[in-house]
Design a protein around this nucleic acid. Structure first.
Lengths: 241, 241
DNA sequence: GCGGCTCTTTGCGCGGGAGCAAACGCTCAG
DNA sequence: CTGAGCGTTTGCTCCCGCGCAAAGAGCCGC
């Protein structure tokens, strides 16, 4: 292939944690590289022959659609993260769409090579187990959240998670470094874009956030956390933990 | 120790699928057996040293509670099913409560022995991967459901799932063979026991279900599926206005 | 610069379903 | 048999958040 990825990109990927340099080289040798222009799909829900994907550059959104067309944003992927790996262990068809929200570069492995890699380096299978287990817990937490909490709190929590995942410090605040529409947030929290817009407007008038088209900056992270955790509305306090 | 489980109980457990008789005997040899009286916990959310559990007899409910005390029923476990295994791969503390809703007998393995078993029989790790992956997909589906669908449909879907898992054919209908309160259903679907009660009452007056205390019988499964899938009401359904 | 497109904001009205409270009824202990 | 306790039913009220609609605001290509 024209593009041969640098083995260094695999560093920090939990799936390949604990592998020695030789093993990493082996993993990289099997990988293919691909450019994915903004707005196109990396793979589609129901596609056969699921393999493994790792994002080198850009942003990818994992969206699951129901029979009625209703969508839910399952994950947002940034450089260095893996995606689409779940399908390999559960029958081979992708359970969701992966769409590039900016121009992307990804490396990928076919299901066959991935299986071979896991046999040659059993450590990968154990890593996968830990990763999938953790993902399961996260989804369970989201399920509990959406089942028991009000909309405002869910939106706050979603933003807090986004900050943790894609937050970038800027002068007076933290920027969410991800193209993020109101519709996206709605599909992450089980509400409508209208309610998200209203909520953000309210927060903006309180100086908690500042948002523009596809773009959000958190001005008072502690206030957002207070809403997410349902703490008393302290004016300026550092929440314990 | 008095109780030495029959290796046959492991048959049909996906986690041990594909193991030969000798390996199964090895697995059984490491297991401990325990009786758990109705109403008590097998393990509690946050407990350290998570191991693996398999239910021999009885019924167990897996419940996750949030900081505010709000609960969500994650799974219902019947004989032959495994539970509590997730925690082994993700840090060692149980993410939910497991409470016996009837007198139970379970076998269990400590985290250490389970790890050793997985090293001795790598097939177990691969099985675990498939199981956790499938569970993740199921939870994602529930998340989508609770995020996008109305209450009546969610309740219908929950009952359909319960029928699949613990359904028992009886004369004119299918019985859900599991002690099931309105509160339980509410905690599975993200609503309140009041709404569940009202919904079941409405269905009962339409002859779709028949319910009493902790007990539900589905009289017209097809009608329930129609509600769950939002299909046009079938032939004998009572017309709406 | 102009027009069109997408994303966003905001007003308005309504309804699904939560919350509260009270009564009913099955089960079981004594 | 009697009483206590828990699960269930049902009425009533209220309001959060959805749905609809229309206007505003960046951003694009031409």
């Amino acid at each position: 292939m024209a593009l041969t990825p640098d083995p260094a990109v695999l560093h920090g990927m939990p799936l390949f944690a604990g592998l020695d340099g030789e093993a990493l080289a082996d993993v990289v040798r099997q990988a293919g590289t691909r450019r994915v222009p903004k707005g196109t799909q990396v793979f589609a829900q129901g596609d056969e022959g699921a393999g493994g994907h790792a994002l080198i550059d850009g942003r990818v959104k994992i969206v699951q659609a129901g029979a009625d067309g209703q969508q839910v944003v399952m994950r947002l992927i940034g450089p260095g993260e893996m995606f689409g790996t779940l399908a390999m262990f559960t029958g081979g068809t992708y359970p969701a769409d992966a769409v590039a929200v900016s121009d992307c570069v990804e490396i990928h492995w076919s299901a066959a090579t991935m299986t071979a890699l896991m046999e040659r380096h059993p450590r990968i299978a154990l890593n996968a187990l830990a990763i999938v287990g953790q993902r399961l817990q996260e989804v369970q937490n989201r399920l509990r959240e959406v089942s028991t909490q009000r909309v405002e709190r869910r939106i706050a929590h979603a933003l807090v998670r986004l900050v943790r995942q894609a937050g970038r410090r800027v002068e007076d605040g933290v920027e969410i470094d991800f193209p993020l529409s109101r519709q996206d947030v709605a599909e992450m929290t089980g509400t409508t874009l209208h309610t998200v817009s209203r909520t953000l407007s309210a927060w903006e008038s309180q100086g908690i956030v500042e948002s523009s088209r596809q773009h959000v900056v958190i001005r008072k992270p502690h206030a957002l956390i207070a809403i997410a955790e349902d703490l008393p509305p302290t004016t300026e306090a550092t929440p314990k933990d």
